[in-house]
């Protein structure tokens, strides 16, 4: 990248003219980071610089934005599971089996560990932690509107459904967020390691639901029973997940990003491992299962917003 271009990008950052919605927190965070002369700053700028010049309509995020997002998702999850386990005053434990409880405790405790990790990274970077949100997992925004899940604090099936949706959303969103921290090897690996742990959690929650009689696999499948469309945010979590078209970019001679091509799973690949052979349509359903799809941060933050007031 040439130096003038770099200066131009810095100027953009300064005026925040190209920044998307959360402009004020970003400016504040940059200010704090500047004062603290932190280790986060170079990477913060680098990740912003890494965006294409036409970033105006794209989702652009600094490392701080990403850390705040993943911490927000971990905190949401922790609160949901803590209430289900009866760890939060005023919320009696759900009637889960001992085995179910044991697995959910594993999930909840790992969320606590990661909240601590993300919080430390944010504070060490010179930024401040946001105030703890107020949660209402019925989706009624503290009784100000009709509840989406009125029995979530008493019915394990309702709770496990919401738990699965939040995890599946996180698994999708992590895939898109890693790109924003690529300049930082430590954070890249931390996000990847969180991402696969989240996928393990999602699989377990799906297994728990299947054991309770729901038609759902441990991986996202076109054969899963549809998740009830209680709101657009919930529906969006699974939009595009049944994709059987996988694309990748050819890199050109200089290692730069080249043309986008799709893998011809539907026509040429010898993936028919079944006996008797699967129909082409059945193969494509397997392809959809074999890949989880990425999603932008807003898919998860919209879900979080349903349960926050």
């Amino acid at each position: 990248m040439d130096f003038l271009n770099l200066l131009a990008r810095l100027a953009d950052l300064d005026s925040t003219s190209a920044a998307p919605q959360p402009a004020a927190p970003r400016r504040a965070a940059l200010g704090q980071l500047g004062q603290a002369s932190t280790a986060l700053l170079p990477g913060l700028l680098l990740s912003a610089l890494g965006q294409p010049a036409t970033a105006g309509t794209l989702d652009t995020r600094t490392r701080l934005d990403v850390l705040l997002l993943v911490r927000q998702l971990a905190a949401l999850d922790n609160e949901l599971h803590s209430r289900a386990l009866g760890l939060v005053p005023g919320y009696p434990a759900l009637p889960l089996t001992a085995t179910e409880k044991a697995g959910i405790q594993v999930i909840q405790q790992q969320e606590v560990q990661r909240i601590a990790l993300f919080s430390q990274l944010i504070v060490d970077g010179g930024a401040t932690l946001p105030a703890t949100p107020r949660y209402d997992f019925t989706g009624s925004k503290n009784g100000t509107q009709a509840a989406l899940y009125p029995n979530i604090q008493t019915n394990p099936d309702a709770y496990l459904l919401v738990a699965q949706v939040i995890k599946d959303a996180a698994v999708r969103v992590y895939k898109s967020q890693v790109d924003f921290v690529r300049s930082d090897i430590y954070l890249t690996e931390t996000l990847l390691r969180t991402h696969s742990a989240e996928a393990r959690h999602a699989a377990h929650l799906r297994t728990l639901r299947r054991q309770r009689g729901v038609v759902v696999k441990s991986w996202v499948s076109p054969d899963d029973a549809a998740v009830p469309a209680t709101s657009a945010a919930i529906t969006r979590v699974y939009e595009g997940e049944s994709s059987s078209i996988q694309t990748y970019n050819i890199s050109d001679a200089n290692g730069q990003l080249g043309a986008l091509v799709s893998v011809p799973f539907d026509s040429t690949l010898p993936i028919n491992v079944a006996t008797p052979p699967l129909s082409p349509e059945a193969i494509l359903r397997k392809v959809a299962e074999a890949f989880d799809e990425p999603a932008e941060a807003v898919v998860a933050t919209n879900v979080a917003a349903l349960f926050t007031y």
Binding site: V171, K175, V178, S196, E198, R200, A202, E289, F291
Partner: peptide, 10 residues
């Protein structure tokens, strides 16, 4: 990332 999460689910 699209593949590893399916491996983690497995």
């Amino acid at each position: 990332g699209q593949i590893v999460s399916v491996e983690a689910r497995h």
